[in-house]
Amino acid sequence: MSYLAGFGAALPERVVTNEELAGQIGKTAEWIRNMSGIEERRWAGPETSVADLAVAAGQDCLRRAAAPTSEIRLLLVASGSGERRFPGPASEVAARMGLGETPALDVPIASAGSLFAMVLANDLAPKWGPALVIGAEIMSRVVASGPVEPGVAMLFGDGAGACLVHPEHGKAKLIGSKLASDGTFCGDLKLEADAGLTMNGRTVILQAARKIPRVIRQVLATAGVRAGDVEVYLMHQANQNLMDRVADALNVDRGRFFSNIVRYGNTSAASMLIAAAQWELAEGFRPGGMVCLAGFGAGFHWGAALAEGV
């Protein structure tokens, strides 16, 4: 078991409101708000890369955790929107952060990628040393690259989040986790090499609404923690309506699910860590306080983790 030593985030400056987007996708601003809970999102400029956002989030995380770059022994970068088929952004991020020859691993899993990377880091850190986990996405470019349904185009924003997983100390101890994958519906949310992003929203929502509460319950049951005893749920910011349904399924107040989707939209693999970074600034861990992290996305890949404040 390792520790969460801190979080960080980076967001592009440009704000794209529903009013601006509505005309482009042939819908109204109100429709976007009702279908997703989103009012605005951030879009990166053409000169910004996924690695740019990842580096900024990684540096913010290390600064906030008061951890020197020289301490990092492993880098994991989750992204589904890297500019290249290979190499992924991880090695570039490592080089630009001054990590020398530190192993840098790409986790090309959209949406749930940062959760997967964080849970892997939890297991790897005791052997390798402190691990920096980053989720970074420029989804606006993915949406712009091909024809995309209005209900999909409205969702996405750009940004990056990061967390430091330390084997010896931190603000919270990771006390449980479960990851899962099922490719039965892998064609229902996909970005193919030469085609645009496609999503069968009904399948995604139906599967997510069942799998997320179930995996959270499994993690909590293993740790002997009740859903109502968790202080905050930091979930992939997919869609406000989905987060509300997950809260309802767990029979916990919807307010327990930290949400920033109204301002940033769905930033795919970055969203859970951006949410964590903002929640940490606003509230943060307290000794004994339980925090549950969860994600779900293309694949499908999904999972949950439980952290206890120290």
């Binding site: 929203g201 399948t203 139906l206 599967q207 349904r245």
Partner: peptide, 28 residues
């Protein structure tokens, strides 16, 4: 119905007919 009513409908069917619908059958 909208997409978000679908999980509620499936849960309602499970309860009303006393069955458990496996994830593999959750095709809209």
């Amino acid at each position: 119905l909208d997409s978000f009513a679908l999980p509620d409908m499936v849960t309602g069917l499970e309860e009303a007919f006393g069955i458990r619908i496996p994830d593999a059958d959750l095709n809209p």
